[in-house]
Amino acid sequence: MTAIETQRLTRSYTVKGKPDHVALDKIDLSIPRGEVHSLLGPNGAGKTTLCRILSTVLLPTSGTAKVLGHDVATEPQQVKRSLGVVFGGDRGLYNRLTSKQNLDFWASMYGLGRAERRDRVGRLLDRVGLAERADEPVQSFSRGMKQRLHLARGLVSSPAVLLLDEPTVGMDPVSARDFRDLVRELRSDGHTVLMTTHDMPEAADLSDRVSFIDNGALALTENPDVIGEIVSSKERIDVRALPPELRQEVIRVPGVSTVTEIEHGLFRVEAEHKEAVRGVLMLAIEAGVTDIARSRPSLEEVYLHLIGRRGMNVAP
């Protein structure tokens, strides 16, 4: 069954004296149940707009969006019951209340009874490492701790589908690693996760599939393991400290197409087939060069290839 499905989903905004701004343009996306799916794209690309529509707080201009078969526009109550939402940043909590009071309130918003709330809140605070700070006001928390509490808030209804909008922004590395463990647990428990992020390694590590979105349009949806083929279908190895004479020998190996210095002292060898790779490896090892790594085009390279180097500029 499909957890999230959009068909020709479009959202535009009327801007006085200007043409309508199209934030989402005929998006077709289908995410099966149990999948962890990342949305990648620059600021203003439409990621958050998509999350807002799916969470029923923004209506589409045209097209449809469904969560577990329920239309976000015509059946919002059914959608809300199956959806957990974590918008990015450390805002969204009641700072003068304790973390326990915050979670209790949100659990109540999702219709949980008193006994269920007590049990769920305790377990979630324990899960996100805040059990010892349960009775402290949230205003005394660090940004990372607030982020963890946000995650707990999103999970309070044990939702089948979880929307995470830049969930690790501001998290320290340890918290971010714990977050990734949590997402893996959610996947193994059968939850569907749609996550927007700028963190490419995180997306590659966690996602079953990733989608690139730019200027409101979906550029590509693919498995991160094979997505590198978009940029290059060649075998690649990176070799550090490759002497000039050895470099000449490597380039003469049948099947080796290029040897390029990608940064100071680090050379990338691109080959047409695995036999060529083996030949390069043999040469390097015989010459005593052991700092060798097989590499594939990273998600970041694919991102730059598809989206381009826009720098600080946001989408128009």
Binding site: T56, V85, R91, G92, L93, S108, M109, R153
Partner: peptide
């Protein structure tokens, strides 16, 4: 202002 309005509206209550 505190980013809670949308979260409140995304809840079923």
């Amino acid at each position: 202002e505190n980013g809670r309005l949308e979260l409140l509206l995304a809840a079923p209550a």
